[in-house]
Design a protein around this nucleic acid. Structure first.
Lengths: 220, 220, 220, 220
DNA sequence: GATGAATGAGGTTTCATTCAT
DNA sequence: GATGAATGAAACCTCATTCAT
């Protein structure tokens, strides 16, 4: 994301203080959702006045977008780090799957924030958000698959854009399934076990098989 | 869903009138989201007083749940109709994919409603919703795959529960991608075309290839 | 009470049906208070339509007043029966105290209704209610005491009106203390025992001593 | 009362402003009753916004309880001041009766508030209120009577708890009779005079005689 | 820069009463 | 006589945002 949603005053704060503030806001937004989150509560939890909050961010929405920006940067950086290796596509896929799981465990809040925006109802806002959040990652996936296609590492009848789309769909759902309440329960229903009895390795292995075959084998 | 969320007075209405009312409510909920939806607006749009609205539903939440119930019944019925055929699994998969696309085009609102609940933040409510919405469908998918496994129609190293999960993940994302604003834009970003230029057939074909190979081929 | 607060249609009902209806209304009014009681609920509990309810009573207030009228008639009849004996005043007092206790146990709802009106805030309504409810009983007490005064059965320096007032104060409080939630707890606090461990006989005996001495002995 | 029912923001106000606010609220509650009182009206009368009102008190009930707390503190303080003298019991009784009359004249609203809670229908709330309001005063009365009993100042066959109860019953009724609409009219009916023609001194004298004899003389 | 008191529009819910059938 | 669907004013409460200090 290029655009800034905070005011100048926020930029002047130490990075540490910025992070402190945003983490508290992210806690509120990810646990209550955008509409139910309360700016006054965020300010109180952060130990600053509501007045100062509005010196940093013009509106509740701007605060949310700044939080989202931070969250997405971290999620994307992780995934992009994995993708920029020289590994073959399927090796990258394995690593990206494992990384997604780790992210879900360690950055639950950011994923919940991400989940929050996917339910955005306002068309224009949804378009703007999607453009900011999805453009970069999609390019990375598409490029990687296109390269693999060129190298003959994957089936030749795949459409790189759509296969990238399907892969990311699976990754998104994996992340949501380990982070967001509804999807967590849904995962339990599918696996038939309690949330604390999930066998991560089995899930990763099966997903890998699924993806690997999908990308590799061509029906004749 | 077994439970009822409406009052007796609502049950006494003609089916036509019930549907009329719910459709208006679903319009509001799916276009604004639960929290931003306004019961007064729904009542006004339906041409009834707010008092009568509360004769039909005890709370805003009950109205929403009744809408959701209607929506999910329609979505599930469609998919289950497809799944109960005697076709082989991959044939069923193809039909279920095509059906999902049709649903997205024709029952956008119901899918938006479904999308709305996946962002539920309250743990207990999320669990309850997921149980009501996911249990039945998941069983159908899992059973179908288990049968295919027994018949030797699919790769023998797959875990039916997890492969059902991955398949449904792809189907959910497909539906969301044709219904919900954010996901629609995301699909455009991945495919690189405008929303009205999407090539449905290409998407279906590619997804079929993806799924088919995933389910069929076993790496040695 | 002379005035009627019901419509003609109510008078045409059988006495049994009238009582049935009023008892249900009294249940609601005495358990929730006037303002919190719900006419629609009363109608439903009575198994009649709200429309019919309004054929019987013009307003919620009229229904309440009719209930009150019934309750007060019963309470007053009981006390007046006791008072019209030829016993001496203190014998009457003893019997009226015991009768009050029995009323509290057996006609709790009527006493709660009585309690409800003592909190009436509207001046005019309060005056009207008090006139209807208190006039007759007060006369009976005052007359009895005046007679006892003339007979020399009680101290000669008492003012019959005020001693009647004090006596009735004690009786009212006794009845409230065995019927109304707040006063029940207050009685427990004063006696130091739980509500179900109250020693009725001790209370009656002590109150009798209190009243007896108050009425009998004259300081010189 | 120990517990606080206001928010921090209210505590920060000057005592003057707190009293100003509470007096306006007490006016509303005592003139209309809890249920009919309107917070918006209170706010408007106090010249503050409804939002600010809710910064001070979380709910209508909390506002009411704060009013009640203020009222009860004043009533209790007055009575307790009288009771902590070294006078003999009957002297104390006289002073407490006179004080009750003064309170009724000067703190009508607080007594109306007290009256309001005695009609509480909700069992749990009634118990809680009674405990807070009655416990302290009852102890004072009971202790004073027990001491008088030990000193031989009163009849030896009295039960201190019950005689305290009867005494307080008479005091409560006295206060209500000079403050609350219904009880005022009832007093007029008993005395046979108009409200503005009441002979306070006669009432006090007669009540004193009543109480004095009740406490002093023992039937043989 | 920093505060936090203050605002008030807006949303959900209740219920006495009406009236067409 | 009897019904009960329908009304809508009114009340409580929330929270993003402003602004004087």
């Amino acid at each position: 994301m290029i655009t800034n949603y905070h005011k100048e005053a926020f930029a002047k704060l130490s990075e540490e203080r910025q992070n402190f503030l945003l983490d508290i806001a992210i806690d509120e937004f990810s646990s209550k959702g955008y509409k139910n989150a309360n700016i006054n509560v965020i300010a109180k939890n952060a130990g600053i006045s509501i007045g100062l909050m509005y010196k940093y961010f013009s509106t509740k929405e701007d605060l949310f977008l700044t939080c989202l920006s931070k969250g997405m940067t971290i999620l994307h950086t992780t995934l992009e780090d994995v993708m920029k290796s020289n590994d073959k596509l399927l090796k990258k896929a394995e690593r990206v799957i494992r990384a997604s799981l780790v992210l879900s465990r360690e950055n639950t809040n950011y994923i919940k924030l991400y989940n929050e925006i996917t339910a955005e109802k306002d068309g224009e806002r949804a378009v703007a958000l999607a453009k900011e959040v999805e453009t970069h990652t999609s390019t990375i996936y598409i490029t990687a698959i296109a390269q693999a296609l060129a190298s003959g590492d994957v089936r030749q009848d795949l459409n790189p854009r759509l296969f990238a789309f399907f892969l990311d769909n699976l990754l998104m759902m994996l992340q949501f399934s380990f982070s967001c309440e509804y999807y967590k329960e849904r995962l339990c229903i599918y696996t038939g076990v309690n949330i604390d009895e999930l066998n991560d390795e089995e899930i990763v292995n099966q997903l890998l098989k699924f993806v690997e075959s999908a990308f590799t084998f061509e029906k004749n």
